[in-house]
Simulated assay, not measured.
Amino acid sequence: MGKRVFDFAVNIINFYRRFSSEKKEFILSKQILRSRTSVGANIREALNAQSTMDFIHKRSISQKECDETIYWLELLFATGYISKKTLKV
């Protein structure tokens, strides 16, 4: 699994810790935590795929989880929970 994927998962865990304690928002931030950490888990599963189709399937799940994470972040931005700077990180 790529270091970049792992590092981003660590960043999102730290974001969740700070965000949930500072903003007292737990529902959306927990969704971000779940979807973002799932990306790395599915990439790791893809590395152990039993077939090419299994590999493609696991990687496509990772892509969907990335898209879901973006959705939750955009929602937090649209409702004023996070700044544009935070959204770009």
Rank of each mutant, 00 (worst) to 15 (best):
Met1His: 10
Met1Val: 07
Met1Cys: 05
Gly2Ala: 13
Gly2Ile: 14
Lys3Arg: 14
Arg4His: 12
Arg4Trp: 14
Val5Leu: 08
Val5Phe: 07
Asp7Asn: 11
Phe8Cys: 07
Ala9Leu: 03
Ala9Gly: 14
Val10Asn: 06
Asn14Glu: 15
Phe15Asn: 01
Tyr16Phe: 11
Arg17Asp: 12
Arg17Ile: 12
Phe19Cys: 06
Ser20Val: 15
Ser21Glu: 15
Glu22Trp: 03
Lys24Leu: 03
Ile27Leu: 10
Ile27Phe: 12
Ile27Cys: 03
Leu28Lys: 03
Ser29Thr: 14
Lys30Phe: 03
Ile32Asn: 00
Leu33Glu: 08
Leu33Thr: 09
Ser35Met: 07
Arg36Pro: 06
Ser38Leu: 07
Val39Met: 00
Val39Ser: 02
Gly40His: 08
Gly40Asp: 04
Asn42His: 12
Asn42Val: 00
Ile43Val: 09
Arg44Thr: 12
Leu47Phe: 14
Leu47Trp: 11
Leu47Asn: 15
Leu47Pro: 05
Ser51Phe: 06
Thr52Ser: 13
Met53Ser: 14
Phe55Leu: 11
His57Pro: 00
Lys58Asn: 02
Lys58Thr: 01
Arg59Tyr: 13
Ser60Met: 14
Ser60Phe: 11
Lys64Gln: 11
Cys66Trp: 11
Cys66Thr: 09
Asp67Met: 06
Glu68Tyr: 04
Glu68His: 07
Ile70Val: 11
Ile70Ala: 10
Tyr71Ala: 02
Tyr71Gln: 02
Tyr71Ser: 08
Glu74Pro: 04
Leu75Cys: 02
Leu76Asn: 02
Leu76Asp: 01
Ala78Cys: 10
Tyr81Trp: 14
Ile82Asp: 00
Leu87Gly: 03
Lys88Leu: 15
